[in-house]
Design a protein around this nucleic acid. Structure first.
Lengths: 210, 210
DNA sequence: TCAATTTATAGCACTGAATGCCAAAATGGA
DNA sequence: TCCATTTTGGCATTCAGTGCTATAAATTGA
């Protein structure tokens, strides 16, 4: 992966040397999502996306490793934020509370981002190819959570305890996201909060009904 | 998908008409798993598998829809069993207990099957392509559980409650499986049981340490 | 034994994703 | 203008997956 380092967040704004990029990750993503939304993910070829941005097919693959990846935007950055939130939490606060608040916090989005996010999540949770790829991305999310849990209760992140908590937490987050993407509740963080509270009560049947 | 109906489980053993199949799903799976195990999943082409079974590439795709699917064996049958267990459970027994016992019951394997199962699970949880595809297969598993939960607490399977329980339960089951596949504990059902008990207690920190 | 029917296979052509390789274009600096 | 740098474009290739058609092998019935 060779991203443009020209406007990277670190270091000085490095004067532009060599040929200028013909487009950007953001532009590619916009064009692609638009096509996916209009004619469907499987019905959109990489050639079409490239043409829409005015770039060759080969160049598309220099901006994104695969067609799948386009839908994930800047997921990596969110992962880093989650890790920081978890690491900086008070040791006094109960583990599941820390986890819930951290996940809620990393999923606050501005009103302007919500529409695009809903399109992304709608695709991720409905197109088989993307449902599949989500497992790969979410595995990284799980690793972060498992690391945090292992830190709290001792042992390694690979043990049954941390793995179970991490994967169950992922399940709760995914449930909240897909429910939010499907219905028209504008309250994403509320859904996440509810899902994690259910998880922390061990799925008490009365609470589930309420 | 056209499987051989010749020895199908339903109906009379239907006399063999027409040309006999050159191989079987089982034989294809055996040859494929052997190759995957020896030289890796990505390094094994469909042509190689087909050649190993003595059949053309095109015929391979008549036995399995994709290279990925080979690893999943007869997962569909297990799904049906889970659905039956959940449906026939007593309404008096707590929901999470029913779920735990049903999942444990559908994951009892004979000693002879365990080695191959470990190879399958090892691949599923380590090869990116298969990690990805697992999301598609496990989604069907989730649907079954979400249906059961909705039946118990009311509402539809798409609501936040059933979705959260189902996906978290899946997480617990996956954690148990991967832990079992990685370490040499021969006690698969024990791992599943432990994971689901953790889940039902809302991940009590003391219990997680114990 | 021969023809009709049934079922499975082989082979070919084609699409589409992804990757490696190299030449050409564009840009700033000496 | 020449050079180093960076990005792009195009080509060739691999591999998964699919549709189509012809052919091979097997049973049934005459």
């Amino acid at each position: 992966m060779t991203r443009t380092a020209r406007h990277g967040p670190d270091g000085p704004p490095a004067v532009a040397r060599g040929r200028r990029p013909a487009t950007s990750r953001e532009d590619v993503a916009r064009a692609a999502l638009d096509l996916f939304n209009r004619q469907g993910y499987d019905e959109t070829t990489v050639d079409e996306i490239a043409a829409a941005v005015g770039v060759s097919r080969r160049t598309f693959f220099r901006y994104y490793d695969s067609k799948r990846e386009v839908v994930w935007g800047e997921f990596d950055a969110e992962l880093v934020r989650l890790e920081q939130k978890l690491a900086s939490a008070s040791t006094d606060e109960p583990m599941m509370d820390v986890l819930r608040r951290a996940v809620v916090a990393t999923n606050r989005f501005g009103a302007g981002e919500l529409d695009e996010l809903r399109i992304r999540m709608g695709l991720i949770s409905s197109v088989p190819t993307l449902v599949a790829h989500s497992a790969v991305r979410y595995a990284e999310w799980c690793d972060v959570v498992a690391g945090f849990v292992a830190e709290r209760i001792g042992g390694t992140p690979d043990d049954l305890g941390p793995q179970t908590v991490a994967r169950a937490a992922l399940g709760a987050a995914m449930a909240a996201f897909t429910c939010w993407a499907r219905y028209d509740t504008d309250d994403l963080t509320g859904e996440v909060d509810r899902a994690f509270r259910l998880l922390a009560t061990g799925f008490d049947e009365d609470r589930l009904r309420g």
